[in-house]
Nucleic acid binder design. Structure first.
Length: 574
RNA sequence: CGGGGCGUAGCGUAGUGGCUAGCGCGCCUGCUUUGGGAGCAGGAGACCGGGAGUUCGAAUCUCCCCGCCCCGACCA
């Protein structure tokens, strides 16, 4: 039983000045967490109980799916990470340290290497597979910008699992098992979420999905088709545009367009000159970028920006993309800022990528590579060539669902889980092989699956709060019932304690506000801030033999006889 | 890493060159009070983020450093 009179807790009356998002603000105010440094937090008793409830739900679901828990150190030697090249690739995001002899160590940002080596150390036959292992471990990433309290920290707890299979089909099966276990886990955590397609990313996997918990303060943007259920991270959203018949389009024609360096100014001139009908979407925007020191041009319709995240996600192998600076323009004398067209790209030695919206056969108004001149009837495939189609235009609300053409909605969310089929990259690099039926050595294929456990605390808080405080789902709350005793007589306090003991004897966890010196108002405010799902008030109503039972989330109140209180609380909790 | 903002007691803050740095919350003591963050009285708590400088005088001005928050870039 948690007793407020002795609980190590101090709630704050004011919002902390350095917290902006709701979960951060409320978790600090209600005395769950305290900041130690940027992106590094301590858990106070209430917070740690809540965190552990979540951790235990995750653990139970992993266990019942047949995955086995192991535990690695957080501090690791650099050698395995050198073998997979991540000691270098991870760059400054990796926390590195040395021992007294000068040997290099790191604080694990993720543990693919260690799991791979662990399996390699124990298993060597196909008969041992499949196997799935997991751990719940503190991870360290020296993010350039930790933010939103516990949502993106530099130290955080992740449940990471890895599956090991002989065959691709086996991997798909293991992946599906994890997917199902994740669905159960997040349902129990009381989270609203969508499972969305993700870009496999630099890890080189094939299939990848993210579990996203919708909330305004989320860092991820995803699209959702409410009709067919298609959901994708914006980076992974695909656009289907069919090739067009350009046989009737007139010849390319250059036109004088003085003072039209922007799309808007160009559209205005075009409409004046040709009697209307032109919009930003009639024009072709040529965005000049440097992709790892290579000049590229990305073509998107004029009414859309290039989404650098989408572009990067869909250009595997490219590490850094940045927009052209004046210095870069200086190296390509043929490019006239504001009047660039793809017609002469080959001549300039620039690789042209196009968004799929710039489909073969489509006709555009674009720059003529001469100051104050544009060209119209510029046809893709006739007047310019595209070296590859890459999803790169920004996605807008109302864009067509790639499956059913319905306009999609766009929403923000927190990534709470990510599952993907890693493949053989790590097994290859670390030489994890088993002998197959024929006695031949085969490289094992892996899946990788993560849940942000500490982040889940914040994600749930984001989704479950109101203006006055937190409202935890029953399974994760630091206690199921918060009993508040008020008044100055002993009776309400004795009654409250008896009630608490009775509930605990039924395995219902209780927090009891037995503070004699705090006024009722303080106790009510605290209870609402802390957010335990059922609040029971033992006070005035006792004169009629009643206690008041409130549901924190709905604000619903009712008075029940003291003797009937336990039964009615049990009913509310089920 | 680019842009913006901020750093004064545990928390929230006032104070833009001039007395002993002010207020609210919280904390301690006493009395009163007990259904919506109670009242009165008394009290403790701050080298004003750090360093250097300008000045008769610096929380306040200048420079450097450190830390924190927000937007963006980044984020298996």
């Amino acid at each position: 039983m948690l007793k407020m009179s002795t609980l190590f807790l101090r709630t704050l009356r004011d919002d902390p000045a350095d917290a902006e998002v709701a979960s951060h603000r409320l978790l600090v105010r209600a005395g769950y967490i305290r900041r130690i440094a940027a992106g590094i937090y301590s858990w106070l008793p209430l917070g740690y109980i809540t965190y552990r409830n979540i951790e235990n739900i995750v653990r139970q679901e992993m266990d019942s799916a047949g995955f086995q828990e192991v535990h690695f150190p957080a501090m690791l030697p650099k050698e395995p990470y050198e073998q997979t090249n991540r000691w270098q690739e991870y760059g400054p995001d990796l926390f590195r340290l040395q021992d007294r002899r000068g040997a290099d160590y790191l604080l694990g940002p993720t543990h693919e290497e260690m799991f791979t080596l662990m399996v390699k150390g124990e298993y060597s036959s196909y008969k041992d597979l499949p196997v799935s292992l997991y751990q719940i471990q503190t991870k360290y990433r020296d993010e350039t910008r930790p933010r939103s309290g516990i949502i993106r920290g530099r130290e955080f707890v992740m449940k990471d699992s890895y599956s090991f299979d002989l065959t691709d089909e086996g991997l798909v099966e293991s992946y599906q098992k994890h997917r199902a276990a994740y669905v159960k886990t997040f349902d129990r955590l009381g989270l609203k979420y969508n499972i969305v397609s993700a870009v496999a990313g630099a890890m080189g996997g094939s299939s990848s999905e993210e579990f996203l918990a919708p909330c305004d303060t989320g860092e991820d943007t995803y699209v959702l088709c409410e009709k067919c259920g298609y959901a994708a991270n914006v980076e992974a959203m695909v656009t289907n545009v069919s090739p067009q018949d350009s046989s009737k389009v007139g010849a390319l024609e250059e036109i004088d367009t003085p003072n039209t360096p922007t799309i808007d100014s160009l559209v205005a001139v075009l409409n004046e000159r040709f009697g209307g009908g032109f919009t930003g979407a009639s024009t072709l925007k040529n965005v000049m970028l440097m992709a790892d020191d290579k000049a590229i041009s990305v073509l998107v319709p004029g009414d859309r920006e290039v989404d650098l995240k989408r572009l990067q996600a869909n250009l595997p192998g490219v590490k850094e993309i940045r927009i052209f600076e004046d210095e870069d323009f200086g190296k390509f004398k043929g490019l006239v800022k504001g009047y660039i067209g793809p017609q002469d790209a080959a001549k300039f030695g620039i690789t042209v990528y196009a968004d799929p919206r710039v489909a073969p056969g489509t006709s555009w108004v674009t720059g003529a590579n001469k100051k104050d001149r544009h060209a119209r009837n510029v046809v893709n495939g006739r007047d310019f060539e595209v070296s590859a189609y890459v999803e790169s235009a920004e996605i807008k609300k109302g864009d067509a669902c790639p499956k059913c053409q319905t306009p999609v909605i766009i929403d923000r969310a927190i990534e709470i889980g990510h599952i993907f089929q890693l493949g053989r990259k790590y097994a290859q690099a670390l030489n994890l092989t088993v002998l197959d039926k024929d006695g031949k050595s085969q490289v094992v294929t892996m899946g990788s699956y993560g849940i942000g456990v500490s982040r889940a605390v914040a994600a749930i808080a984001e989704q479950s709060h109101d203006e006055i405080g937190l409202c935890w789902p029953v399974e994760v709350a630091p206690a199921k019932v918060h009993i508040v005793a008020t008044g100055k007589e002993d009776l309400p306090f004795d009654t409250a304690e008896k009630l608490a003991l009775e509930l605990e004897s039924k395995s219902i966890s209780v927090m009891l506000d037995d503070r004699r010196d705090a006024s009722p108002g303080v106790k009510f405010k605290d209870a609402e801030l802390i957010g335990i799902p059922i609040i029971v008030i033992v006070g005035k109503a006792l004169a009629d033999g009643n206690v008041e039972v409130r549901v924190r989330r709905t604000g619903e109140k009712s008075e029940v006889k003291v003797e009937a209180a336990v039964a009615s609380i049990v009913a509310l909790l089920s």
